[in-house]
Simulated assay, not measured.
Amino acid sequence: MEIKELTRAEEQVMQELWKLGKAFVKEIIEQLDEPKPAYNTVSTIIRILETKGFVSHESFGKSHRYFPKISKDTYKEFAASKLLSGYFDNSPRSMLSFFLQESKLNIRETDELLKLLEKAKKK
């Protein structure tokens, strides 16, 4: 299945659904920041996500409880790949260099990155 890019609103809803695992629209809205979107807005976004293949549901009478069909890790891989190809000419080195320069990492974070790089180098 081909993964499609999420809009900002879709991604916000998916982030909450990934955290919750399974949820009714009302439960998703409770997790969103103020100002809370209208019930119909979130319901529409969920239906769009279902059409895109990100979400499915269980029926409870007239109510639906939604759950992710695509894991957060799967979407993370897609988004990282799109970022890498779209902005860094498929160069992980360029992307890492950008994040190192722009992120203003502290010493601990830099040490952790170095350890990860050493670990990857040994593989």
Rank of each mutant, 00 (worst) to 15 (best):
91 S>L: 11
80 A>K: 12
70 I>Y: 05
41 T>V: 11
34 E>L: 13
112 E>R: 10
16 E>P: 00
13 V>N: 08
109 E>K: 13
45 I>V: 14
86 G>Q: 09
18 W>T: 01
10 E>Q: 15
76 K>W: 12
78 F>D: 06
103 S>M: 14
77 E>Q: 12
33 D>V: 09
10 E>W: 05
42 V>H: 05
87 Y>F: 13
50 E>P: 03
60 F>Q: 06
57 H>M: 00
99 F>H: 07
5 E>N: 12
11 E>Q: 13
54 F>I: 01
25 V>C: 09
117 L>C: 01
94 S>W: 12
78 F>Y: 15
16 E>D: 09
121 K>F: 06
82 K>W: 04
9 A>C: 11
35 P>N: 08
6 L>D: 11
57 H>P: 02
99 F>C: 03
86 G>I: 04
52 K>G: 02
107 I>M: 11
20 L>R: 09
93 R>H: 13
78 F>S: 07
115 K>N: 12
9 A>Y: 15
18 W>S: 02
115 K>W: 04
59 S>W: 09
63 S>T: 01
43 S>H: 12
104 K>N: 15
87 Y>I: 02
13 V>C: 05
66 Y>E: 02
119 K>Y: 01
119 K>R: 10
121 K>H: 06
35 P>A: 05
114 L>Q: 08
80 A>P: 00
71 S>T: 15
58 E>L: 07
98 F>V: 01
90 N>W: 10
96 L>A: 12
35 P>C: 06
80 A>W: 10
90 N>R: 08
39 Y>P: 01
76 K>H: 14
4 K>I: 07
94 S>A: 15
90 N>T: 06
31 Q>C: 10
109 E>L: 13
18 W>A: 01
55 V>D: 02
118 E>A: 03
66 Y>P: 02
6 L>W: 09
90 N>S: 14
26 K>V: 11
21 G>C: 02
7 T>N: 05
54 F>Q: 00
32 L>W: 10
